[in-house]
């Protein structure tokens, strides 16, 4: 195996195997998982009731249980495929469309491009979650009566994809700009290459590794937005609002949203009213989000510091050069970080 192979990269392997394990067990669980009827009461050896659902975290219920007595571990595993799957899908489309749009921006005259970047600057003055929410909420919450289920699922996905395209496209356009300033591009131009050919043969190949990294980062970003939207009471993959209770005096209705898929954001939204009395009911899905995002970030770290790990291996055999190598590592690290702001 090559020394800089990603398979020898500990953070990368840890992150990927965590996510793969989660996804595989999620599919296996919904295929073969035993449908155990949950018990709302917990008995001791003599058959006395010791606890009522929701149960606090214990050995039997590592992350606690929900109101019906279902263990959160299984709920989260079942929901993983929807949450992570959707995040990967959204991130994928984000990259595809940003790539196309970034190329379009690249070909645009710089004055128009500056106008666009000035407009896109708006997204720096409020969290992305708010913009996403304001565009999704009419469909799934405020006017939920008039849109059908497929609209309620597809439209949020489109918004989640579209909202990040301006910023990502500008980033890709910047990268293209930087590559096109290299000397070999001039040579290619002199040799007669132009326009799309130049892009396809000389610019794009340099962009692909960066796009991969961007893709993984975007999966993490989408997961964070999912978690936020859960707290904002939006269920990705359809919100079902039901009227639970009507106050006779004021006529105000108490509504509650439901998610049938155990999708994580939905679990946060559904359980947030119980956060004060049964903290684990919200903490469990949030922890699932946190762990997945940690896994994503360690994959990103692994990819970004690929060369470093190779050099560390060299370092052990040749301690005399250690200082210089380490300096290079910090420089690398710094430049990759400063280019990722935005």
């Amino acid at each position: 195996m090559r020394k800089d192979s990603l398979l020898r990269n500990v953070p990368f392997v840890l992150g990927v195997s965590f996510l793969l394990l989660l996804l595989i067990s999620s599919y296996l669980y919904s295929l073969y998982g035993a449908q155990v009827q949950p018990d709302k009461m917990l008995y001791d050896k003599n058959g006395n009731v010791v606890a009522l659902a929701p149960f606090a975290p214990s050995l039997e219920f590592p992350l606690g249980s929900d109101l019906d007595g279902n263990s959160f571990v299984f709920k989260l595993i079942e929901g993983a495929k929807y949450t992570i799957g959707l995040a990967i899908a959204v991130a994928f489309f984000r990259i595809i469309f940003s790539f196309l749009f970034g190329y379009f921006l690249f070909r645009l005259p710089s004055s128009l491009r500056n106008v666009f970047s000035g407009l896109a600057n708006t997204l720096h003055y409020a969290p992305v979650t708010i913009f996403t929410y304001l565009l999704i909420a009419p469909v799934v919450l405020n006017f939920s009566w008039s849109y059908d289920v497929s609209t309620k699922i597809i439209f949020p996905m489109l918004v989640l994809t579209g909202i990040s395209i301006p910023v990502l496209a500008l980033y890709i356009q910047n990268e293209l700009e930087a590559i096109s300033k290299k000397e070999y591009i001039d040579s290619a131009k002199i040799l007669g290459g132009s326009g799309f050919y130049l892009f396809r043969k000389h610019l794009a190949p340099f962009l692909y590794p960066k796009l991969w990294l961007l893709f993984v980062q975007q999966v993490g970003q989408v997961l964070i937005i999912f978690a936020h939207l859960g707290l904002l009471n939006v269920f990705i993959g359809g919100t079902d609002v039901r009227v639970m209770d009507v106050d006779m005096k004021t006529g105000e209705t108490t509504t509650q949203s439901f998610s049938m898929t155990n999708e994580w954001a939905g679990l946060i939204a559904q359980n947030f009213p119980y956060a004060q009395s049964f903290p684990w009911m919200v903490l469990a899905p949030v922890t699932a989000f946190a762990l997945s995002i940690l896994a994503i970030n360690s994959i990103v770290y692994g990819i970004e510091n690929r060369k470093t790990f190779k050099k560390r291996a060299v370092k052990t055999s040749m301690p005399a050069k250690a200082v210089i190598l380490e300096q290079e590592h910090f420089k690398l690290n710094g430049s990759s970080h400063s280019s990722n702001q935005g």
């Binding site: 500056n114 000035g118 600057n121 708006t122 304001l134 565009l135 009419p138 469909v139 006017f143």
Partner: peptide
């Protein structure tokens, strides 16, 4: 220029629901 463009951007984004829904 930055100020004007961003102000315009806020205006455009803020009213976006009217573009997609029969508000």
């Amino acid at each position: 220029a930055q100020f004007l463009l961003t102000s315009l951007g806020i205006l455009l984004i803020g009213s976006l629901p009217y573009l997609f829904f029969n508000m």
